[in-house]
Design a protein around this nucleic acid. Structure first.
Lengths: 328, 328
DNA sequence: AAGCATGATGGAATCGTTTCCATGAACATG
DNA sequence: CATGTTCATGGAAACGATTCCATCATGCTT
């Protein structure tokens, strides 16, 4: 027995149905045809279990269907949920999704963009890494890009969570609790959130201490180092706001290591709600982001050609648990 | 200005270099050519920034490069890490990865397999959902499949963690602590682990109570329901072993909800180590699995054609933290 | 009835690559 | 010098779909 026999092609169907290949193609893609022919072709195609080869179609139309997705780190719960949203939307359109992780590194990102272009993928959703410069060639090549979670160029539509409002709410909450020495532990590139942080402080009459804004790279180690450094060098701080769940995780870990009690010694608010925030000790007060929706909406945007809004902003929500207390 | 100008093709390069397209193709794919020609072609290709279109190549070779990856749930940390491993290996081969989530549902899985075949993807890594029956047509079609995390047919190579040893170690640990009424909270399809569980109990002379083996579906809700049901109806149990991190999460949550104290009232061992296990209160004793390695090795297997071993089994490790105590 | 519009249909071109095969040159061997 | 061998090379076929265009039949209008 010879396994892997040749697959059924449109030619086979045409022959079996006694029509031309053009007719089969038309029938299958909803073009005009007489009722009788249509029925015969459909029946034959079903009988032969014919599935059009994406290869042939793609070459002819000069573009592969499907959408490319570039995220910094699939291991991070936030991007995993975002990815889930993209997949969920893509599935309903029957579009395959090709994924790549950039490690938040513009160089790797550029390489992955190259791969996508090689595949003639013309629809891409990305969480961009550096400034938007990496994307200039891709855009020139006619790529249909939608940014998710971060907005780094204004000639590309994007879907983001409402950073500013989220940070503002959190800071207001903390200040309301009496805190003045509030640190912001950010990932590089979260300039939006940092700006919102300082803006809110000044608008509330709290002096901002630039040394209390600390940046980390997008790895667990870097996050831990930053958190531990902050907690060690600034014994005077009473509250920490982290720019992402990995930073929050690192802060809890570092605090435990250094015998800093949460919320007794310092209060903690984490950007991004994750399942374990509730299991943590103490349960973490967070700014929840609709990660899955961000992905879903981005996919809708990239799939529905046509009109493209500037930027879609999705609301965030402060969820109060038990990691914040009054200023000690 | 007209954006999106036609992309450079092999024909352009051939013309510019004054050679035939066949020669260009040969040079670029390492075939034989005179040193002089080779150099000229290479230079021209670089000058024109030529990148071969994957579309043309794929059609010609009757297969799209790249690998397909099917996981039950990208939101689950374990599968996210597995995916990360696959991506990491695939990247070093320059192969794109197309991902799909099955929701652990054979029907959705079958649909996704259909999509992959449509794309002429002939290399697939999958965490299979039901029994392996879904895969029969794909295998007949000549698909190159590698299973990850679960082994459901023996005509397909696979990479799995050492379930049996992991469960055995955990049960031995628990029994050593004096526990006799130990529950196993499993996901459907984890028959390997369940078998190892009962085997170990009997081999240690502990009577097995079939009602203490509880199954849940692969969703958060189902996991929670199962955990809560178990904790409520079986007040006599003193230890729980969960078959995955989602079930562990659900158990911690349900225990807290029902005022069951861990480890004072019941001890808990969770299959799969996740970053938050350490942040949990109490920190969870777990059976760590090399999720990333599973993915990486699976990718190696599917990319390196050639010799294909039966099954690769990777070791697990019991990490003792603070969620287990002596029998109360 | 002639002319015209409409609609169904199939042949052939096309997309960009790889690969088969023929050609011709260069070289070695007798 | 004749013949055989090796090698570089380019033309052309092939992959499987879509789509342009020409053809032909039908039905309607005048």
């Amino acid at each position: 027995m010879n396994m892997a026999q040749r697959r059924t092609t449109i030619k086979d169907v045409a022959e079996a149905a006694g029509v031309g290949v053009a007719t089969v193609s038309r029938v299958l893609s909803g073009g005009s045809a007489s009722a009788e022919t249509r029925e015969r072709v459909l029946a034959t195609a079903a009988r032969l279990d014919y599935r059009p080869s994406a290869l042939g179609r793609n070459l002819r139309q000069q573009r592969s269907g499907g959408i490319g997705l570039l995220v910094p780190d699939i291991t991070d719960s936030f991007y995993a949920r975002l990815t889930d949203g993209v997949l969920s939307c893509a599935r309903s359109y029957g579009e395959p999704v090709t994924i790549g992780v950039t490690g938040d590194d513009p160089e790797q990102e550029a390489e992955l963009i190259g791969t996508l272009i090689e595949q003639s993928m013309d629809r891409v959703i990305a969480v961009p890494s550096g400034d938007g410069e990496t994307w200039a060639p891709a855009l020139r090549a006619g790529l249909n890009v939608v940014f998710a979670d971060r907005q780094v160029r204004d000639d590309v539509p994007g879907v983001v969570a409402d950073d500013r409002a989220g940070v503002r709410t959190a800071v207001e909450y903390l200040v309301g609790l009496g805190h003045k020495k509030i640190a912001f532990l950010a990932r590089h590139g979260q300039s939006q959130r940092v700006a919102a942080f300082t803006d809110t402080l000044t608008s509330m009459g709290v002096p901002v201490d630039p040394e209390l804004v600390v940046h980390a790279r997008a790895s667990r180690d870097s996050a831990y180092a930053a958190a531990a450094g902050l907690l060690q060098h600034r014994a005077d701080l009473t509250a920490v706001l982290t720019g992402g769940n990995m930073l929050g995780e690192a802060t809890v870990l570092a605090a435990r290591e250094l015998h800093v009690r949460i919320p007794r010694d310092v209060s903690l608010v984490m950007f991004d709600d994750v399942p374990w925030a509730e299991l943590c000790s103490p349960p973490l007060t967070v700014i929840a982001q609709p990660a899955q929706d961000v992905g879903y909406r981005a996919a809708e945007l990239v799939l529905r050609q046509g009109r493209r809004p500037r930027t879609v902003t999705l609301p965030t929500e402060l969820i109060v648990r038990a990691s914040c207390g009054p200023r000690r």
